[in-house]
């Protein structure tokens, strides 16, 4: 089965694919021989579902769990803050804090920067 060269599957167990080139809303994607139409712009580094995912399903990237879907996500749809949640709970916070540790201001609206910009290496 073939998949679009603009998408990369980082590990055979993954159920998401990562954009390795920028794509536009309306672009057609080939995923395992099936064709899907993108409904949003997809910058490099963003993810789409590799197959239909049910709500609460564990999402795997690089073979590792990176969170759970909060809604059903059909194949080819953008996987991000609107439908994927962290399941991480820091050990020192067990017993008191929330696990959704994403800041409230989730998207940097002041820049189109698609890079990480982290100061920690």
């Amino acid at each position: 089965m073939s998949t679009d060269a603009r998408l990369i599957r980082l590990h055979p167990d993954d159920n998401c694919l990562v954009a390795c080139r920028p794509m536009r809303a309306g672009d057609r994607l080939l995923i395992d021989d099936a064709i899907f139409e993108l409904d949003v712009d997809l910058p490099v580094g963003h993810k789409v579902a590799a197959r239909d995912l049910v709500a609460g399903e564990t999402v795997r990237k690089c073979g590792a769990a990176i969170g759970r879907t909060s809604t059903a996500v059909p194949a080819g749809k953008h996987l991000h803050l609107h439908n994927l949640r962290s399941t991480y709970l820091a050990a020192h916070l067990v017993g008191g804090a929330q696990s959704d540790r994403v800041p409230k201001n989730t998207v940097d609206t002041t820049t189109n920067n698609t890079t990480d910009g982290s100061s920690v290496s």
């Binding site: 993810k47 998207v107 820049t111 189109n112």
Partner: peptide, 29 residues
């Protein structure tokens, strides 16, 4: 995790999210 949180450097930065990273697990992986 505790050290960085004390310093206010916990979790994941807005630039990470704009770059397509959704969760702290994903960033760390």
């Amino acid at each position: 995790a505790r050290y960085y949180e004390t310093l206010g450097h916990a979790s994941i930065a807005p630039g990470n999210l704009a770059g397509g990273l959704t969760t702290i697990e994903e960033k760390s992986i």
